[in-house]
Design a binder for these strands. Sequence first.
DNA 1: TCACACTATTATGTTAACAATTATGTCAAC
DNA 2: GTTGACATAATTGTTAACATAATAGTGTGA
Lengths: 221, 221
Amino acid sequence: MPAAPDSISQIVSPDEVAEEDIVERIFEAVVEQRLPPGTKLSESALCLAFGVGRMRIRRSLLLLSSREVVELHANRGAYVASPTAKQAREVFEARLALEPTIARLAVERASPEDIANLAAHIKMEHSAHHDDRRLEAIRLSGQFHILLAQIASNAVMLRIMKGLVTRTSLIIGIFGGSSVANCRDDDHERIVCAFEARDGQAAADLMTEHLRVIESSLELG
Amino acid sequence: MPAAPDSISQIVSPDEVAEEDIVERIFEAVVEQRLPPGTKLSESALCLAFGVGRMRIRRSLLLLSSREVVELHANRGAYVASPTAKQAREVFEARLALEPTIARLAVERASPEDIANLAAHIKMEHSAHHDDRRLEAIRLSGQFHILLAQIASNAVMLRIMKGLVTRTSLIIGIFGGSSVANCRDDDHERIVCAFEARDGQAAADLMTEHLRVIESSLELG
DNA sequence: TCACACTATTATGTTAACAATTATGTCAAC
DNA sequence: GTTGACATAATTGTTAACATAATAGTGTGA
């Protein structure tokens, strides 16, 4: 093995990286709505796209299905999930239960640097909006919520949120209609203001309202 | 295929059942603390135990690891997870965010039959406690929280809760000390009383208190 | 022209053999 | 008696060939 001795223990095997990496990249593609609900994910295509063997792809698809971002149909392959209206309501109900708490915890635990990052993020959202970079705007919009979970410093909640945010992108893709009033970045900005004021309760309340607005903008029947 | 034509579409392929079945059974074994943290789960042993091929087992272990109930070490096999104190606090933080809401929703949505089931469940918990059937008591204790999530009729939250409850069993196994003041079934009983009174807020508050008591009974440093 | 049955192709699911790594047990040297 | 290196055994990881099911295409018949 050509690696220097003391670096060995720190090296993560390239195989294992590829695993979570594939999952993460498909997550991103779903969030950016480059993989719309119902898209078929054929094994051979993914093998070519990622340059890995079939086994690795099958494992990744299994992981994605366990996060409910991909549906596995026996003998028929993998498809990007198509949440039903019922599932959409459930996802928002879960987010309404979790994210106000996450927002409050994040305010309590945010370092000055964290708050600066949030402010920078808002600026990026604004400019993406302004320049009509729609995909970028969508991605940043979801990323904002992930960022809060990271600041809250709770890996368990972070993991859950990644799944919920990703599925929310699918939901918006299906039930967003044409007016697609995604995350209004104004709402995000107000939440960041609550951070700067160190007002956890305000952040929680704003988050609740934010999620309610998004959900009510959907056509869930 | 000998099955009647109209039943074919309803049949779930036996293979696919075995998949989730293995995961579910290992979940149960972990909840009942028959698989303590750190237990090695060798592929060959599981193949024999469940009477399935290695591939099925490997898939199951991957699913279990994605739920963070099992840790996969490259080239070294699968082990029942050993949550750290930090992870334990995170799990409780997540439960504190979710379960009061779940309790409130469950009260709102519980049918009379649901409430009867809850009451019956409490009786089972009591008798298991009384007869010193410790494993059964532990299992029922976790099952109570799952039952609430089922009554809340939110599949997304239910799935999340199954993972959190299972991991809580691991946490109690590690940090419970010897006094193991698991779920006091008295607490559960009070929550059921709130159901009978149809007082969602009371159920939420009791749940919060219940979780806090459990966490504070642990030795998390 | 449409519907249906059959064939051929493609894709997925499974199995088994092989490779690589880790754990174990033995033996010698200190 | 303990430590270290070495050889062996066992376990995990990977690959490739094979089996099976679904899809698409083709042709025939009404």
